[in-house]
Design a protein around this nucleic acid. Structure first.
Length: 417
RNA sequence: GUGGAUGUAGUUCAAUGGUAGAGCCCUGGAUUGUGGUUCCAGUUGUUGCGGGUUCGAGUCCCGUCAUCCACCCCA
């Protein structure tokens, strides 16, 4: 038996209603906020991610699907969306000129991690990016957009965590002191953190080892370092969140695994996903467009994991999408009548299905039931001779005999919920 | 990448080292034109794969692949 590679899943029809509910809610929310869709490539030059996300990050250093194509180009399957969108935006002069540019995307991402609950090697994200304005209102806008999507989906059991990690003007002093602090405790750190101490001391704050966690409380809080402008930005964001009625928790220890963030970072976390507690996250990245060779452009955005949201909604949301009409026929002549009736029904926008084999009424009704049909049309000897249709509503059992001219009207009544 | 657990019918699970089974699902039927409930009957297996031990392996051992969980990391 040929199998799929590890961590790569098929999504079968029974999951599609939930999938559509989630992506549909996201699209709806994006539309209301005036974001427009962009479809970005599934692979890029490796450099897009290496420079965008940061060479020292785990994503780039050990989680990418990277390969050489036949022309000797070094390509990578995208591990996230932001770097690609920024590359597309910076590369396209038309869009790069715009004073303000709001984009969203939906699609698969790839990371070569060990699969487990809520963590796949190919997974899907939707996300939004805004370019061209550093106003903290827009940090609020993308956060509230994700809040709106969870709201539409009926997700209540989550926490929004926010933080400011400063900017290139103020962060270096913080990192320097952080390094100083943890260096004095070096012997107590785990091996990973000893390495982080050299390469990216901020990441130590993300370590979940108890021994390292215990040291965090004594570390200098970032709040004491961020400059006036960053502080002002952060309080304005909080003011917007407050007036929008958005609940949040401040966590000065929230640092994210991608190097490009400046000022605002945020995460939507839940207890429901086991080890993988974040289902959406994002932040501001004011220097990334410039890094990609575009003109200096402030930007902010977020991404959400569709499969993780599906996990949260499983069992809570049930959607059934059966066929509208199932045609039951007996006798060769009846089949032809069923075929033309089915065509008429579909022409009027209702789905219709039938079994072309000569099977008993009972068997066909059973099939109709399994297909979750809302109504059946019965065509047998009686209907042939009277030139009528028998239409039966499956939930109530109500049944009527009508002429072809009344067929669509009758179906409309029975199929409407 | 590290650690632990688990792989038997489509599915959920049984089977002291001694002939591979059950529920659900699926197919058909219950006096031949009506589904969902009920009753009856029936189909379904290279026991993940490859070695080894044994008279004999689903069961014990080794390897391998995959899944799940945790670490790690992140959406």
């Amino acid at each position: 038996m040929i199998q799929k590679p590890p961590g790569i899943d098929d999504i079968f029809p029974d999951k599609i209603p939930l999938w559509n509910l989630i992506t549909g809610s996201a699209r709806q929310s994006f539309r209301l906020m005036n974001y427009r869709e962009i479809i970005i490539p599934v692979m890029e030059y490796t450099d897009v991610f290496a420079r965008g996300i940061g060479n020292e990050t785990d994503i780039v250093s050990k989680e990418m699907f990277t390969f050489e194509d036949r022309g000797g180009r070094n390509l990578t399957l995208r591990p996230e969306g932001t770097a690609s969108v920024v590359r597309a935006y910076a590369e396209n002069g038309e869009y790069n000129r715009l004073a303000l540019c709001k984009l969203f995307y939906i699609g698969p991402m790839f990371r070569a991690e060990r699969p487990q609950k809520g963590r796949l090697r190919q997974f899907n994200q939707f996300g939004a990016e805004l370019f061209g304005d550093g106003n903290p209102y827009y940090d609020y806008e993308v956060i509230s957009m994700m809040e709106d999507i969870t709201d539409r989906l009926g997700i209540r059991d989550y926490t929004l965590i926010i933080n400011s990690i400063g900017c290139p003007a103020c962060r270096p002093a913080y990192i320097a002191d952080l390094k100083k602090y943890f260096s004095s405790k070096r012997d107590l750190l785990c091996d990973d953190c000893k390495r982080r101490l050299e390469k990216n001391p901020l990441r130590i704050l993300d370590c979940k080892k108890e021994s390292c966690s215990a040291l965090k409380s004594g570390s200098p809080p970032i709040t004491g370092y961020i400059c006036g402008e960053c502080g002002d930005h952060h309080s304005k964001l909080k003011a917007h969140l407050d007036s929008g009625g958005t609940k949040y928790t401040e966590d000065p220890l929230l640092v994210r695994g991608l190097d490009y963030y400046t000022r605002t970072t945020f995460e939507f976390v839940t207890e429901k996903l086991g080890g993988q507690n974040a289902f959406a996250a994002g932040g501001r990245y004011d220097n990334l467009v410039e890094q990609f060779g575009g003109r200096s452009t402030p930007a902010v955005g977020f991404a959400a994991g569709i499969e993780r949201i599906m996990l949260m909604l499983e069992g809570v949301v049930t959607v059934d999408d059966g066929v509208d009409v199932y045609l039951v026929h007996v006798g060769g002549e009846a089949l032809e009548k069923a075929v033309s009736a089915a065509k008429l029904i579909r022409k009027n926008g209702y789905s219709a299905d039938l079994d072309p084999n000569e099977r008993s009424f009972k068997a066909q009704f059973k099939r109709a039931d399994r297909e979750k049909a809302k109504a059946c049309i019965v065509i047998g000897q009686d209907e042939i001779s009277s030139n009528n249709f028998t239409v039966k509503r499956l939930d109530t059992g109500e049944q009527v005999s009508i002429s072809e001219s009344a067929l669509i009207e009758t179906i409309e009544k029975m199929v409407a919920r």
